[in-house]
Amino acid sequence: MKKIILVASPGGHFVQLSLLSDKLVGWKRVIIGTYSSKPSFMEGEKYYAISDFSRTDIWKSLYVGYKSFKILKTERPSVVVTTGAAPGLIFSLIAKLYGVRTIWIDSVANSNKLSLSGNLAKIFGITVLSQWENVCEHNDIEYHGRLI
């Protein structure tokens, strides 16, 4: 069975990710979020909680990075997908360094330009997708559909 790691910040990011998870029946879905336990609307076989952080408490990224590495080492997924934001970026960077196929799906909220984190992900060589064709065109990235 193919294993996928799905990781996102709470709120809209996580909701969008849950729509994807619903469609991945037949995969082993390892979910990573910042909720203390997995919300019921998110389908998945396993759950890990990590700390949320943003630009104002960026030091937490070190801890998230360490935890991401440990999870990747344990789970050895074939794909990692994130819908952002900051913790998703750290996790996807570590996954990329670890040699796992890593996909960043920029939030549907970003209808005119790529998010800052999405841009950083792109710079680091992560496969970045936008859910808006116009944003894909402007950023020279491929369009592969959308979650909503």
């Binding site: 729509l19 559909g145 909503i148």
Partner: peptide
Amino acid sequence: KPKGLNSPSIQRLVDFIA
């Protein structure tokens, strides 16, 4: 009405991931 969760566009994304 919301377009729901069975749109061809989400399937396209799932196919890309798979």
